[in-house]
Nucleic acid binder design. Sequence first.
DNA 1: GGATAATCGAGACGGTACGTCAAGTCTTCTT
DNA 2: AAGAAGACTTGACGTACCGTCTCGATTATCC
Lengths: 226, 226, 226, 226
Amino acid sequence: MAQNVVAQNNAGSAAPRTGSSGTNKKKETCVKRSPGRPRSEESRLSILRSTIKMLKEDGGFSELSIEAIAADANVAKTTVYRWWPTKAALVADAFSHSAADELRFPDTGSVVSDMGLQMRRLIQILRSKRGRVVSALLAGGQSDPELLKAFRDRFLWPRRQHAYQTLQRGIDRGELPAGINLDFILDSLYGPIYLRFIIRHDKLEDRLADEICALVLKGLKNPPQS
Amino acid sequence: MAQNVVAQNNAGSAAPRTGSSGTNKKKETCVKRSPGRPRSEESRLSILRSTIKMLKEDGGFSELSIEAIAADANVAKTTVYRWWPTKAALVADAFSHSAADELRFPDTGSVVSDMGLQMRRLIQILRSKRGRVVSALLAGGQSDPELLKAFRDRFLWPRRQHAYQTLQRGIDRGELPAGINLDFILDSLYGPIYLRFIIRHDKLEDRLADEICALVLKGLKNPPQS
Amino acid sequence: MAQNVVAQNNAGSAAPRTGSSGTNKKKETCVKRSPGRPRSEESRLSILRSTIKMLKEDGGFSELSIEAIAADANVAKTTVYRWWPTKAALVADAFSHSAADELRFPDTGSVVSDMGLQMRRLIQILRSKRGRVVSALLAGGQSDPELLKAFRDRFLWPRRQHAYQTLQRGIDRGELPAGINLDFILDSLYGPIYLRFIIRHDKLEDRLADEICALVLKGLKNPPQS
Amino acid sequence: MAQNVVAQNNAGSAAPRTGSSGTNKKKETCVKRSPGRPRSEESRLSILRSTIKMLKEDGGFSELSIEAIAADANVAKTTVYRWWPTKAALVADAFSHSAADELRFPDTGSVVSDMGLQMRRLIQILRSKRGRVVSALLAGGQSDPELLKAFRDRFLWPRRQHAYQTLQRGIDRGELPAGINLDFILDSLYGPIYLRFIIRHDKLEDRLADEICALVLKGLKNPPQS
DNA sequence: GGATAATCGAGACGGTACGTCAAGTCTTCTT
DNA sequence: AAGAAGACTTGACGTACCGTCTCGATTATCC
């Protein structure tokens, strides 16, 4: 049923734009364009924008209706269905489209500081309207593996790649012991944040980032002497 | 009309109809029974059972339909609506009804061991079919605060109460330093578990419990000497 | 299913009142009263009153709900069902209970005048709120023969009996020819009134009565000479 | 959203798709067809047919359920609701759709004969299964002015137009006096028929038509000499 | 005076149909 | 061909009454 959610649906974007120098009289498009009316970039963006907008405003994933998106985007319902096989695919696409790269990892020369800063930033994002989108994505993902995969592929893994580097720098600098399981460390660092984000049983404050770093990274630094 | 989602709907549990102990002459019935046909306990249980059953089987919270529950429970749809104002209320009730007390905290004389055993058990439950119910609850809760509150009130807090005691025993025994924020510790312990459960990016194995305990609790034991 | 709608449901009314001479010491009730709590006359009247009230106010027969009647009459729904097998039976009963004897036939010494006056009165009633009850009765009767029968037995026939007498007086006085079909005459007289009442295509005014009388009765008076 | 009950829903009747006659180069289509999938004529007819069918079979107007109609017509319930705002509108439409022109007024050269024949035909129709439809329409109309209006607009008035002509011919021929109120005459003629049809207190036979004509029209012919 | 019996209130029960919403598909005209 | 428009089937929604049922409380007669 679900087609590749991860694939770039925005095909066709590639390059009829690069006019390509030349002296051809007629259509000098290098790239073979299929006949017929080309996909409307305007519609595509409008749909993605509306999706994000409604996720931020209203409710969760299941409250989101394609009907409403199409209406808000001033687009026919069929246009949505033509390009995204499921609501999950659309939301995943919209999410990745909106995912600004605000979560860069800094390099201050200290693992604790680097991780702390980035985690702080994540907390801020989760608390913002963008957090609603993440929330919807995770909620929807609980009954749609594809959606969850999209979250991982477009949000989790790219950031983990940077996190690995940050941690590795710490190891190289001797701040962290070698031979540790990086994924496990990262789960320990981010777990508490997501826990409070999901269950909402306690405040999700900036300094939580520091407290976790203090506990986890310094716990690593000083191996048990017992 | 609106019903307290948290309140126990199973009133009339202890019906002392055959009271009569004592020497009173007339009516000694302590509990005044309201007039009218009494609620069918059979229906109530059947509905709760079917709810859990369908959550375990099919999909998530939004895939669950009251229509289907009523059909499966051999009960009129109106009977469901008479007692539970929303699907969320029903699922919350069903969840708490099914939440057996399999998650008791042991008392082995060691914090690390106590917590580890309990976390192990949680992991097993999350991996089992019951995990689907938790998953649905958390997913649904992302767009329904009441549902999330129900999860906390009926699942999280009761268990935290025991956890506090377990940790306190550790402090009393000198295994943990005094003056620590218990909730923060618990979030650190359970965060990674729930993270893997929700995002499903890594295996959720039993030994994860021990690894977290080792990192977090032993990190506490040995305060940084720097 | 339907029990005799026409039968007096208010059995038991018969005569414990006629004390019957005698010298009995105790309870000299001649009529054996069955044991058990007697029917509440208050409830019965309240139900009938509410039924009429709602028919006058709201909509037609099918808009009338037993639920609403019971609520309005401050009576349990079961009490209604105990005494009237169907809504039709109840409405029929209520109608006959409310049917005041305002439609007496006068005796002025002239058929035309007698009939005219009575028809005038009928028109006034149909135009009043009571007309809504008649309308509901006829509407309901179209899919419930029992209800229609009730209308005839309790409204139509009693009045026709008097009409026969009025017409006969006219015949005796020589105002009308002998040997005419009285029912046909009455249908001719009342038909136009009911037609306008039912189809509401034209005004239902008092003078319609006179016009019909003029046409029909005078038409009878002067037999075609052709 | 609300739909004119009286309006012809069967738009698009004359679709000149294959226009092209003439010398125009391009599109000569006179009637602009709106975009989108066109309404299914098949569904429309099926619904109307089923409506009539069920009215003939089962019970009255209130016993008729849109659910059942949709099922019988093999059509989704929403399709019914899309085109007819209320059950009344649907029934009115169905009625007018089924109302064949079997009630033409003849022109035999005699008013009495013309009217008698037509009234005879009406009686036959009312006695037939089609009578149940009329009955349902009038019953429903008692609590729904729109439905009653539909009956008048689609059944009563069209026929009255012809009746006026028939009567006028009689006047022109000297069979009837000039200056009479045609509507009053028609109410007098049809009133008794509908009275017996609605109240069902007496037989509705063919010869009733002649008897009424004899009474009413001949009564007119010979003005009272008193 | 206690058993018996029928009523009444209250209200839960299994149903049926309601009228609405959104889903996803299909058909048509327009660009 | 894509897009806009909009009709289509499907299925669940939450509500209103239906007519039935099971209660406790009441009110009578009968033994």
